[in-house]
Design a binder for these strands. Sequence first.
RNA 1: CGGAGUGUGGCGCAGUCUGGUAGCGUAUCUGGUUUGGGACCAGGUGGUCAGAGGUUCGAAUCCUCUCACUCCGACCA
Length: 567
Amino acid sequence: MKSSDFLISTVKEAPNDAQIISHQLMIRAGLISKLASGLYSYLPMGLRIIQKVEKIIREEMNKSKALEVLMPVAQPAEIWKESKRWEEYGPELLRFKDRHDRDFCLGPTHEEVITNIAKQYLRSYKQLPINLYQIQTKFRDEIRPRFGVMRSREFIMKDAYSFHIDEQSLKETYQLMHQTYCNIFDRIGFDYRPVLADSGTIGGDSSHEFHVLAESGEDAICFSDDSDYAANIERAETLPQQKPKTAEQAIEKVETPGVKTITDVCNLLKVEPTSAIKTLIVEGNDNNLVALVLRGDHELNEVKASKIDGVKQPLQMAEEAVVKKQLGCSFGSIGVVNLEIPVIVDFAAAALSDFICGANEDDKHFIGVNWGRDTKKIIASDLRIVVSGDPSPDGKGSLEIKRGIEVGHIFQLGTKYSDSMNANVIGEDGRAVNMNMGCYGIGVTRIIAASIEQNHDDRGIIFPEAIAPFQLVIVPINYNKSSRVKALADQLYMDCLEQNIEVLLDDRKERPGIMFADSELIGIPHRLVISDTHADNGKIEYKSRKMPDKVEVDFKEVVSYILDKLD
RNA sequence: CGGAGUGUGGCGCAGUCUGGUAGCGUAUCUGGUUUGGGACCAGGUGGUCAGAGGUUCGAAUCCUCUCACUCCGACCA
């Protein structure tokens, strides 16, 4: 490709709504163009990258024997009503009516459509297992789109759905997909981790997210410093701790006027938050209240809390007015002494002795409180968000927390959709069985942003070769003046094309500085510079985007030199 | 949905308080000089100042409403 035949749409300044580096660089390099909030066009340079990513995904998916399909973006309400998600999904699902006043939506995902297909065409266990995938545009009406294509409303996703006669078969394909995802992300050149994930209301214990490690990641993930354990922070468990020490202090009520928060209490009483507890009140299953107790320095993990027996799902914090009426005090003064509602205590809080808590009277707290002696019987459970340094749940090492960008998610759906949509096959014994399903997603467009987050410097993007829009850029100095430079550049360009090198010849009438800056901003991995000075010696200058040094290469050997670099 | 903010050539911004000819940088076009790190000179093109209504002799500027976008929060099978 010659630059004069292409659209190089680089800009010096990014719009000021671009917050993170990948968004800024994607705009500046001219990969994307914003149409409206969360809606982006892919310009020629950006599309080439998408196609590279898609190619890798296709190759690896095909290798795993998955079959590609393509399903509609617009979907009729009927199938969503069948799966109950028309009601459950919420405003993220963009709904509209067609000219006949029939309900439709834009697909945020395709479980319903694929199940509908499976229902029609899968009749016998002999056709199973089967794994169908597509690379398709999705639409989710995000509350707050941000970070460019990282969290946009319209985005490209690879989604795969597998169908199985039993759980065993599902598990095998799940493992295969896990491996396939690793292959894909290895090829893309990510520093990533597969982590245990919460499988949401679907249940089942096997769900993994694939996270690219990056400071700007929206998710917190944690891993052991001494084993393979890695999990989304929502999912990471804490272990029961040792029994509390024997009580040393007597319980005593103290005045704490105006004190509402743990910080206030601790400042007033000159103690650390680790020796106080906080009591959160949530709604219970039958119109009652439930107390959740955490150590002062810990935070509630809402996913864990909502899974506790007797706690209303989804988790709902109690209204302060209701709490006042039933417990006789406001939020800041709730405590566990003489508390007449179910009390669930986090393991860490349950391990405390001689601690501080609210007195269930405004402006008063207890000090020297001990479990059992001063409280009724409690249930100890895992309630909190893990913190750095917690012991790893597998018993090996301690946890470290990093930020990650979720680029893939695989999980076992079981029979949720095949049950509600009645997708069954005839089994070996001649009876109909609802199929087990697995579901596997990769955010194609998000991958590009994630890769840039991980690979850039102050000059721009440093694309890994596997997904770079071009492998090589040829920068001729004085292409339009020096006939010798032009001849050499054209010759080299033709030679590269012959070797199927994805090469960009920058034949624009620009000064060298602009051409260097553009190629570095766009992040083309390899660069050759041709100039009269070098031509005098039969040399060409090579530079890798990753390395600071320039190398002189004989003109005759340059193509094989490049081929070697491309491996 | 709650809080905060911003809308002025493609992009980045000034002008708004204190009403009086629409401005700067960059990009773009033409001509010339340059050519190894975002050049210089000269001359152009391009804006109903987000939209609607109001006040005024006169509104980018003051008032009212609407819309869009951004940030923080809530939400996220």
